[in-house]
């Protein structure tokens, strides 16, 4: 017997992709939106991003140490959660608010359920919702250059059209809003990167955005608005891009199959449109995705692939 030879089960080769590399790709994809946010809102935005990331990492470390689990902060998933939490906050939020919701999100939403892969709802969105419930004013009031400004969605909720141009909304210039959501272009760049790298499929983002666009266009036409501008403003002027590209595509809490992802995207789109147009909030992305997260196991069950050889009639003379 040769002791130096290692024996293990097949296969003996592995693809290079790892959880850490996937998370790193997501972080890279999030960079453009962060840069736009810091440029638009200043260093306070960067402080919040760093505070959220640090709080997430530290909470994960403490939780895992406390229950003597393997520490897995090096998989970078907590970094992604931290960045997304900060991106969903206005730059005027207090750093301690961000730290509290980050800690809550990692401890309660992720680690209590067993850590990465075990949470059933998106931790970053839970953080967003906790903040909204805890400090409704400070996280839904937006300032730009020191002046309080309404987001395009809030303006449209009031029945008017936003003062920003569609181009502003696309580029993220002259836009009040959450740190990471203002530039559709920056988010799209990140999205394209993720698709090219094979990290996400386009199914969910396209289904989500298209559903909102169609629903809003029909609503706009029925209520006698400028359909094109109204639709574009709805699509570009809020958190839809950030949600559709980065939150609705979360592996853990969204369906696995292509078909399932389309159903998921359409569901998110319908809920978002209904909340925005008929609900009490101007924005509905967070709640829509969270609700669809809960439906995910069901969608996965419906869209499970057909198993080879399970078709009863085999053509004998084909």
């Amino acid at each position: 017997m040769n002791q130096s030879l290692r024996v293990s089960a097949s296969p003996h080769v592995r693809d290079a992709r790892s959880t850490t590399k996937v998370m790193l790709d997501v972080i890279i994809a999030l960079v453009p939106a962060g840069v736009v946010g810091v440029v638009a809102f200043g260093m306070q935005a960067l402080v919040l991003i760093l505070a959220a990331v640090a709080a997430c990492l530290l909470t994960e470390l403490i939780c895992q140490k406390a229950v003597k689990r393997t520490v897995t902060i090096s998989d970078l998933s907590a970094v992604v959660t931290g960045i997304l939490i900060a991106y969903n906050m206005p730059h005027t939020a207090e750093w301690w608010q961000v730290v509290i919701v980050s800690a809550f999100s990692i401890a309660v939403c992720k680690q209590l359920f067993g850590g990465i892969g075990c949470n059933f709802v998106n931790p970053a969105l839970i953080a967003r919702v906790v903040a909204q419930i805890s400090w409704p004013m400070s996280v839904s009031t937006f300032y730009l250059d020191g002046v309080s400004g309404a987001t395009p969605l809030t303006v449209m909720k009031g029945g008017a059209m936003p003062e920003q141009s569609i181009l502003d909304m696309f580029l993220g210039t002259n836009m009040p809003g959450c740190i990471g959501e203002i530039s559709a272009l920056a988010l799209l760049v990140g999205g394209v990167y993720l698709v090219v790298r094979g990290v996400i499929k386009i199914n969910t983002p396209v289904a989500y955005v298209a559903t909102v666009a169609v629903f809003v266009a029909i609503y706009g036409a029925c209520t006698g608005r400028d359909v094109l501008n109204y639709t574009l403003a709805q699509v570009l002027g809020g958190g839809l891009m950030l949600g559709a590209i980065f939150m609705a595509t979360d592996y853990v809490t969204a369906p696995m199959t292509g078909k399932g992802q389309i159903i998921f995207g359409v569901g998110c789109g319908l809920l978002t449109s209904v909340i925005r147009l008929f609900g009490g909030y101007p924005e509905g992305v967070s709640y829509s995705i969270l609700i669809m997260n809960i439906v995910t196991p069901l969608i996965d069950k419906w869209t499970a692939p057909r198993i080879y050889g399970t078709v009863k009639e085999v053509k004998q003379n084909g």
Binding site: R6, R14, G114, I116, G117, Y251, P305, R306, I307
Partner: peptide, 25 residues
């Protein structure tokens, strides 16, 4: 060439489902 790997939690990425030639999960 013989890369020893360490298991971590499933992140439900769905890659195993998409490559399974039998259509299993």
């Amino acid at each position: 060439e013989d890369v020893e790997t360490k298991e971590s939690n499933c992140i439900r990425c769905g890659r195993c489902v998409s490559v399974c030639p039998i259509g299993l999960q």
